[in-house]
Amino acid sequence: MRELISTPIFGIMISLIAFEIGCILYKKTKVPILNPLFTSIIMVMCFLTIFNINVSDYDKGGQFISFFLSPATVILAVPLYKKIKLLKAYALPIVAGITAGSLVGIITVIFLCHLFGISKPLDISMIPKSITVPIGVEVSKQLGGIPSITVAAIIITGIMGAVVGPYVCKLFKIEDKVAVGVAIGTASHAVGTTKAIELGEVEGAMSSLSIGLAGIITVFIAPVITKIFENFI
């Protein structure tokens, strides 16, 4: 048994099984907080703790999964290509909305971290919280953050966006489908997009499109905003 645990196959299989169970739970319950990504993380953590398995053993397989995150970023070009006509029709409001959302997200993190006295490494690590993991990790490295903290921040942001995003849109009476999709995709990347897809085809498409654009915009503006507000970090 020990020989199996020390191989990469163990980490890969545990991750896949936990995620599949999470998918089944979410399909049966439709409870936003039971997002497959969130529940699979909890299950893996509990499994490793109960059976006293070292994280380093699990990570031998986890590293293989992490390796494919960056190449997987290329798939973000698919929703952009599929909805290119919709993007052209609403180009200015879409780009303006995503840019504004990305700016507000970054500045809010900086000021809240300053308000609560959070250290600079943690502050910087949470700046890319609203973009997809592969891009967010690279932005974090570029800024001098801690990638593991960035991943945790991205996951939490995505889950919160999926849970409260639709309610926020209802609260502020945002009924335009394009606006709803852009808001959810910009604020909570792929995890939020899973909820946007449930809301409707247009919402899901615009949210998917926003993931890629928000990531690209953040890559360029994050270093600039960080430099401007460096006294608050």
Rank of each mutant, 00 (worst) to 15 (best):
Lys83Pro: 00
Leu112Gly: 00
Lys141Gly: 12
Gly11Lys: 00
Ile159Pro: 01
Ser207Ile: 06
Phe229Leu: 03
Gly185His: 09
Thr186Glu: 01
Ala205Arg: 09
Pro93Ser: 02
Ala196His: 00
Pro32Trp: 00
Val31Glu: 07
Val219Phe: 11
Ala153Trp: 11
Lys28Pro: 03
Val139Phe: 00
Pro147Cys: 13
Leu115Thr: 12
Ser208Gln: 11
Met1Tyr: 12
Met1Val: 15
Lys129Arg: 13
Ile42Pro: 02
Asn231Tyr: 12
Ile184Ala: 08
Phe19Trp: 10
Ile118Gly: 04
Ala196Tyr: 01
Thr218Arg: 00
Ser15Gly: 01
Tyr167Val: 08
Tyr167Met: 13
Ala214Gln: 06
Ala72Thr: 09
Gly22Asp: 14
Ala91Asp: 08
Lys170Ser: 15
Gly62His: 04
Gly204Lys: 07
His114Tyr: 12
Lys120Trp: 10
Val104Phe: 12
Ile174Phe: 03
Ile33Gly: 09
Glu203His: 02
Phe19Cys: 05
Val224Ile: 15
Asn54Lys: 14
Gly204His: 04
Tyr26Gly: 05
Leu16Thr: 11
Pro223Tyr: 08
Ser66Gln: 10
Ser15Trp: 03
Phe47Leu: 07
Ile154Arg: 04
Thr39Glu: 06
Ile233Tyr: 09
Ile94Asn: 01
Phe67Leu: 14
Lys88Asp: 03
Phe51Arg: 02
Gly158Leu: 11
Asn54Trp: 04
Tyr58His: 08
Met1His: 14
Val74Arg: 08
Ser140Val: 06
His114Cys: 02
Gly61Asp: 09
Thr73Val: 12
Glu3Thr: 14
Gly192Arg: 05
Ile21Gln: 00
Ser6His: 09
Ala196Glu: 10
Leu115Cys: 03
Val164Asn: 07
Ile156Ser: 06
Gln63Met: 05
Ala205Val: 06
Ile24Tyr: 13
Val104Ile: 15
Leu37Ala: 14
Gly192Thr: 13
Gly101Phe: 00
Leu87Thr: 05
Ile65Ala: 12
Ile154Leu: 04
Leu171Met: 10
Lys173Asp: 09
Asn35Ala: 03
Glu20Thr: 13
Glu230Asp: 15
Ala187Val: 10
Ala214Glu: 11
Thr157Phe: 07
Ser66Ile: 13
Leu112Trp: 11
Leu34Ile: 09
Met126Leu: 12
Lys195Leu: 05
Cys169Glu: 01
Val133Asn: 13
Thr218Gln: 06
Ile155Tyr: 09
Met206Ser: 02
Ile50Thr: 04
Ile21Ala: 09
Val178Leu: 02
Val95Leu: 11
Phe38Thr: 10
Leu69Lys: 11
Phe67Cys: 08
Ile184Leu: 13
Tyr90Asn: 13
Met13His: 12
Leu87Lys: 03
Ile50Gln: 02
Thr218Gly: 06
Ile41His: 04
Thr108Glu: 01
Gly105Ser: 09
Pro223Met: 08
Tyr167Trp: 08
Ser40Gly: 10
Ile42Arg: 01
Cys46Phe: 14
Ile118Lys: 07
Thr194Leu: 08
Ala152Pro: 00
Val78Glu: 07
Val95Trp: 07
Ala214Thr: 15
Phe116Val: 02
Ile197His: 06
Glu198Thr: 08
Asn52Met: 08
Asp59Glu: 05
Lys88Thr: 01
Tyr167Lys: 14
Asn52Phe: 06
Val224Cys: 01
Lys227His: 15
Val78Tyr: 12
Leu25Gly: 12
Gly61Met: 06
Gly105His: 01
Cys169Phe: 04
Met43Ser: 08
Ile197Glu: 11
Ile84Ser: 11
Gly101Ile: 03
Cys46Asn: 03
